[in-house]
């Protein structure tokens, strides 16, 4: 600067300021750009999309589909009046193939292992280890069919662990039937809330709504089922269900006017396995046949 002053070129020595200002501006620009770029890189690397998991819906879907297929297969196998196991197996095989193709599209393997049909217990899932005390249906207005059949009394509990079906409503107990094995026959005790209505001996079938034992009306059993349940909004409950093996049929109308049906002649227990790149689920699925949609 001193040299410039001495040479008398004072005018041009202030041009450096512009360069300095431009330099600062460029520096500031670089800093701002760096910070912005940094944020962009952080934001794009943050894990946000990995939490979408639909496997539970796939599983629920598979369960619903398999249960309905079993019921359909049973209906198909029964179309000639008696159970045709070949048709039943064929129906399920073709379902297994179609379902696994269908799931393969969405990246899932679906495997379904059909087991033999089991004899039905009166427990919730129909298997020997199922829940003992459960409710078949609630909010019932009328029951038109109520039939129990116990073909093998050796699998029926004795008087200390008898199987009982009770009818209850919001105010309490209305009617009950207790079944236990006694020297090769079925001992039937029917009661209402205060007293015993009657005791009967049956060999296999008890038709409560039809007032029949072993398909006949003699010696005229009177279960008084509709007398005790008429006009109430009741539930049908089973107690000690795993102490009896047999078939049951319930049908009637709900308080809402809809029909309800529960028929159990067999219990299917297939194993379903689903597998994707990040999960694997294996479970069994007890299915009551013919089920609730007959």
């Amino acid at each position: 600067m001193r040299i410039l002053k001495r040479g008398g070129m004072r005018k041009s020595d202030e041009h450096g300021q512009l360069l300095l200002v431009a330099g600062f501006a460029v520096g500031l620009g670089i800093v701002v750009l760096t910070i912005m770029l940094n944020n962009v890189i952080y934001a794009s690397n943050i894990a946000s999309e990995s939490s979408i998991d639909t496997s539970r819906y796939d599983m629920a879907n598979a369960i619903q589909m398999t249960s309905e297929t079993y019921e359909d297969a049973y209906r198909y196998a029964m179309k000639d009046g008696s159970f045709n196991s070949t048709s039943f197996e064929q129906y399920l095989d073709s379902y297994a193939k179609l379902a696994s193709k269908n799931y393969a599209i969405s990246g899932l393997t679906f495997n379904f292992e059909n087991n033999t049909l089991h004899e039905p217990y009166f427990s919730q899932n129909g298997l020997a280890n199922g829940k003992d005390n459960w409710t078949i249906a609630s909010n019932i207005n009328t029951t038109d069919v109520f039939v129990l059949e116990i073909p093998d009394t050796s699998k029926l509990g004795n008087s200390s662990n008898s199987m009982t079906i009770t009818i209850t409503n919001s105010s309490g107990f209305l009617w009950s039937i207790e079944l236990f094995s006694s020297s090769g026959s079925i001992n039937v005790t029917v009661s209402d809330q205060s007293s015993e209505i009657g005791t009967y001996i049956a060999s296999s079938q008890i038709n409560i709504t039809g007032n029949k034992i072993d398909f006949i009306t003699t010696p005229s059993p009177s279960f008084q089922f509709s007398d005790h349940t008429a006009g109430s909004n009741y539930s049908i409950n089973i107690l000690n269900g795993s102490n009896a093996v047999g078939y049951c049929t319930f049908a009637g109308h709900m308080t809402s006017g809809e029909q309800f049906t529960f028929v159990r002649h067999w219990v299917g227990n297939p194993v379903i396995t689903m597998h994707s790149s990040e999960m694997r689920i294996k479970r069994n699925l007890p299915i009551t046949l013919p089920g609730r949609n007959t």
Binding site: S123, N125, G130, R280, I281, K282, R283, N284, L285, P286
Partner: peptide, 16 residues
């Protein structure tokens, strides 16, 4: 849901 419906879960595995 499986326990409520009387089913039995044999395996559930998720990779993480």
């Amino acid at each position: 849901s499986a326990t409520n419906s009387g089913s039995e879960i044999m395996e559930i595995t998720y990779k993480l």
